[in-house]
């Protein structure tokens, strides 16, 4: 039941991000609720389910993206795995620490995606757009962690 609830919330996040979040863009940047789900899965579940939800979150993000390969599937499952490892070593019950952790993960994800996309010849906008996204998206995503994490923790 816990897992089904988590899955449904993740689906809801996916649909919110693809539709209702459009007007809430700050300087053209919107939070990555699916990355938030992948990290939360790592913090809340055992490794098997953390990886499963990481893969699903990545799949949902990839299916509406423009690139034809599973970049997010690979990296979201990695972030779920890293979150799971970190949650075993460090207690992340404090929302502030969890938010900082999400911020770091989002920062790393954006940096790596830029490198991978550049390497693969996929254009991702100017350096200014990249810098703006790199600075704003992790903060914006982390801002959503406390309410999202509470919802996840309560329902799961």
């Amino acid at each position: 039941m816990k897992k089904i609830c988590f899955f449904l919330i993740m689906l809801l996040f996916f649909m919110l991000q693809a539709t209702l979040f459009q007007p809430f863009r700050v300087f053209g940047v919107k939070p990555d609720l699916l990355l938030l789900s992948a990290v939360s899965a790592g913090l809340l579940f055992d490794l098997k389910w953390a990886l499963f939800f990481g893969i699903i979150a990545g799949f949902l993000k990839d299916i509406l993206g423009v690139q034809d390969f599973a970049f997010n599937v690979a990296f979201f499952s990695l972030w779920s795995y890293v979150s799971h490892l970190v949650s075993r070593k460090v207690h992340l019950d404090n929302e502030l620490f969890a938010a900082i952790f999400v911020c770091v993960v989002a920062f790393a994800h954006i940096g790596i995606s830029r490198i991978v996309f550049t390497f693969l010849g996929i254009t991702t906008g100017s350096t200014g757009v990249f810098a703006r996204t790199l600075l704003l998206e992790p903060l914006y995503t982390a801002l959503f962690l406390p309410p999202a994490y509470r919802v996840f923790a309560r329902l799961t």
């Binding site: 490794l47 990886l51 893969i55 990839d62 034809d68 599937v73 690979a74 795995y81």
Partner: peptide, 30 residues
Amino acid sequence: RIAYAAICIVIVFAVFLSTPALRTPFLDSF
């Protein structure tokens, strides 16, 4: 073992997402 299984699943999904014939029904379902 779980990590290996996850890598296998990632590969399967990568193939899935690279194949429009498999990918498009998911777009339809949403």
